[in-house]
Amino acid sequence: MDQAVATAVGVLFSISTLVLLALGLAIIFGMMRVLNLAQGEFLTLGAYTVLIATSHGLSIWAGILLAPFVVGSIGVILERSIIRFLYGRPLDTMLATWGLSLALVGVMTLVMGPTTEGIATPLGSFEVGRYGVSYYRLVVIAISAGAALATYLALRHTRAGLIARATMQSPHLVAVSGVEPQLVYMATFGAGAALAGLAGSVMAPLTGVVPTMGLAFIAKIFITVMVGGSTVLVGTVSSAGVLGLVESAVSYASTPIYGQVAMLALAMVLLRLLPNGMSGLFRGGL
């Protein structure tokens, strides 16, 4: 029984971190067809926000609250200065954001140094029989669920969400009705960056902070978003569910490395079977 509870928390944790990590890119890719390869560095920037906040005497929670705003602003700046010139050229966007990713890693190394900085994991743990479960893991699960729910509500039930969805379908119509599509793109990219910043800040106390930390997650994020397909929420959550389950199951049975290999193999098979990703399985939805 204790083992079942501990394992369930473990699996739920991997799925929800996957959702949280992928959500930002899912929005940028799903709504704008821009595959942002610098998404991993946005995570890292979020993590550094927490690190800098805590070293200035703020609490970890304040850092996590701050991170989406900091990274969101950086995202908006980059969108205005680089990305906006490349709309409609998906491969060029990938190349440019890749260059951005390399340069960001370089600059962060220059400014923050190449060493890993640790942030102590807050809150401690409780025991389930022989197994320890950390409270922070539960908090992460809650934050992921909250972020997914907030995204859903924002897209479905707010005027901004409606405009955003309309812009993605027909920018001309939106422009005709008096809204500047450029503004919508900027806001969407900023929102995606902000979510990445949130994810990075949440992961920081678990992994340690180093300029190259984004690399550890970026493969997972891409696979999740690709397998998820075009619908932002349904696709991402269902693909994170399937992939996260397989990854953690195989990791428990063997090693985390085989877990990652299994995840990639499954993703390839899914892409072959479902060219539109998991979204192809659902009609409509977000």
């Binding site: 680089i82 010139f85 490349l86 060029d92 190349l95 440019a96 890749w98 260059g99 951005l100 990713s101 390399l102 340069a103 960001l104 890693v105 370089g106 600059v107 190394t109 220059l110 190449p114």
Partner: peptide, 19 residues
Amino acid sequence: IYTTIVLGSILVAIVLLFR
């Protein structure tokens, strides 16, 4: 470190300026 910054900037610049 400068190598990655330079390489990254080259990539961005080429995509933006010299297609």
